[in-house]
């Protein structure tokens, strides 16, 4: 084999290896996003109270993760993804606050019937009885409302630790704070939720 053909062969093998690695990375990222996307959507939805806005936020987080952090180790993806998502939720709240001030200025409030969701009002696809569905739905509504009443940082700590199952270190990365702060926020969140849900049960 001549020197030129040897170089060509080495170059081909190198390109093949790079291509295989890129494909593996894409498959790995696809699996990660597919695994996390539904929980991320519900977490964002609890944060912003709107499914469409939550879908937009999750899409933005996915794109930013792929664009900026796909070369990082896959172990780092979960906290990074949630950090991007939580930043998006915070920005959303800031924009809403400005929007609400402008709408109040122009005297336009939100109509009561805007929250009605025809899909949510459809029958349960899991085939549960109306009573069971109602019970679970009411319990989840109570929980969601209680979570929404939490201060922002407590809500983030609770949702990331409980719903997503991140450990303290991962939650700290996702929230951009120390592990001690995560523990404090989470502990306060649990106590507030217990009090709020107890009050709700007593009222019902």
């Amino acid at each position: 084999m001549s020197a030129e053909s040897a170089c060509f062969a080495v170059s081909c093998v190198s390109e093949q290896t790079t291509g295989t690695r890129a494909l593996q990375k894409e498959q790995q990222l696809n699996r990660f996003l597919a695994e996390v996307e539904r929980r991320a959507l519900r977490i964002a939805e609890i944060g912003v109270r709107d499914r469409d806005d939550a879908l937009d936020l999750v899409q933005d987080a996915m794109i930013k993760l792929a664009r900026n952090y796909s070369d990082r180790s896959s172990d780092e993806w979960t906290p990074l993804f949630y950090r991007i998502l939580q930043n998006g939720v915070r920005d959303w709240h800031r924009r809403q606050a400005v929007r609400n001030r402008v709408m109040v200025w122009f005297g336009r409030g939100k109509r009561d019937d805007e929250d009605f969701d025809i899909v949510a009002a459809a029958p349960d696809p899991m085939g549960r009885s109306p009573d069971e569905e109602l019970q679970n739905s009411e319990a989840m509504d109570s929980l969601e409302n209680a979570v929404r009443e939490l201060p922002l940082r407590q809500r983030e700590a609770f949702m990331l630790r409980t719903f997503e199952g991140l450990d303290v270190a991962g939650t700290a990365v996702a929230m951009g704070c120390s592990e001690g702060s995560v523990k404090t926020h989470y502990s306060r969140a649990i106590h507030s939720l217990r009090d709020t849900l107890r009050e709700h049960d007593e009222t019902v």
């Binding site: 990375k25 696809n30 996307e37 539904r38 879908l55 996915m62 794109i63 792929a66």
Partner: peptide, 19 residues
Amino acid sequence: DAATLSTLNQSRQKALAEL
């Protein structure tokens, strides 16, 4: 619901296209 899952799938494909 299925419509939401479909939207999530489309979002994922867009993100992967970024690679």
